[in-house]
């Protein structure tokens, strides 16, 4: 657990300069600073479009966290499915 926490802390620290660097070019080009029309949007589309219009920082954070969580969840689920069909993977020998 301690090792895992250390890895997470390191990853966060390593990500910080990148996030700060990402914020540098925050000025949104005019042609891309458009607003999405929220009328007739379904609940999921409305949620994303609302934050997109309202605050791009929150939108970017939602996108990044969501993609990370989705990736992590899919990795877990597909692993279980592959195990069930007999395609599980273990540590492999490295030969060229």
């Amino acid at each position: 657990m301690k090792k895992f926490s250390a890895i997470i802390l390191n990853l966060v620290l390593l990500a910080l300069p990148a996030l700060l660097w990402a914020s540098e070019g925050l000025e949104v080009p005019e042609e891309l600073g458009k607003k999405v029309d929220l009328a007739n949007l379904g609940s999921i589309n409305y949620f994303f479009a609302h934050w997109y219009n309202d605050n791009l920082w929150v939108y970017a954070t939602i996108v990044t966290v969501l993609m990370g969580l989705l990736g992590f969840t899919i990795a877990l689920v597909t692993d279980v499915i592959l195990k069930m069909i007999g395609m599980e993977t273990h540590k492999m020998e490295h030969h060229e």
Partner: peptide
């Protein structure tokens, strides 16, 4: 890491279509 950085930086520059990214991720994960 470069993907996380790219996702965030393009997000704040209003250039990520999240619904399309989710659908692509489902295909890509498989």
């Amino acid at each position: 890491f470069s993907g996380a950085y790219g996702c965030f930086t393009y997000g704040i520059k209003a250039r990520v279509e999240i619904i399309a990214a989710i659908l692509m991720l489902v295909g890509a994960a498989i």
